[in-house]
Amino acid sequence: MLRFLVRRTLGAVVILFLLSMVTFVLFFGVPRDPALLMCGKTCNADAIANIHHVLGLDKSIPEQYLIFLHNLVMGSDSFAQGPCPAPCFGYSYHSNEPVWDTLIDRLPTTVSLTIGSAVFFLVIGIGAGLVAAWRRGTVVDKVATAGAMVISGMQIYFLGPLALALLVYQTHWFDKPAYNDFTANPLTWFSGLLIPWVILSTIFAAQYTRMARSSMIEQLQEDHVRTARAKGMSRRYVFFRYAWRGSLIPIVTIFGIDLGSLLGGAIITEWTFGLPGLGQLSVQSVFFSDLPLLLGVMLFAAAMILLFNIIVDAAYAFIDPRVRLS
């Protein structure tokens, strides 16, 4: 198991390295100069050259890349704005803040949004899927299946504004969604995020309902499940001990991917509800051609996805002894 984790972590580092390289090349491939954005009204060739020099954009691309890598690992004192300890992504072109601090600053919003909605969509989604599978073919099953089908056809940018319009602006039952620090006041944290959680998890839950139902039904038709019934185990026992164990594999797989990508920033959700998380940050970085911020957001999101991939693979080993012992 340890060998496996070490090998996978090394692999992830290599992927991040390649990804940063590709991002670099693509950034300079786009015919858009960040200096033009920063230069302002009194812009001339000299001013632009000066900005290029200050940002280090006058160096060759490979050279800039090496400097980026060096700073990332070793930190740097050569920034005009101040010291930049490792992991140093440099200072944002736009806000002049250290990129790493900005990321850390935005992280709680994204983590709160993700964890909160994950709890909702796992419980509701899988729960509904299990009920549908248990009562397969009955009205309950048909309602759950049809409901999941309808909801999974909807999108955040439809449900989100609808919820805001109804629950916030029309009825004033809720305040406008906002992120409040959990440590300061858990209650306002909860009420501020409730609407985004519910909307985001509704859409995810539908997917989990369908998946939990179909994989449970598939598992219930397995030979070993029939064997368990043939030796006198009750339907409930077989459902939760034998079939459930097998249907966990596809659920964990998708959950890992979802969690990883949500932690990298739920772009549309954050925009819809005006929550300043990593998703908003990534849009900003592209908008302002902010290379340090872009690299920071990209690599952070990629690292999250890779991390959860490794966690998912490790989880397989806990679920399935065939993976663990081979």
Binding site: E222, D223, H224, V225, R226, T227, A228, A230, K231, Y242, R245, G246, I319, D320, P321, R322
Partner: peptide
């Protein structure tokens, strides 16, 4: 009691 055909699939892998 019952014995099934394929002992690989008829026993739970978990």
């Amino acid at each position: 009691a019952m014995i099934f055909q394929d002992p690989l699939t008829a026993l739970s892998p978990y």
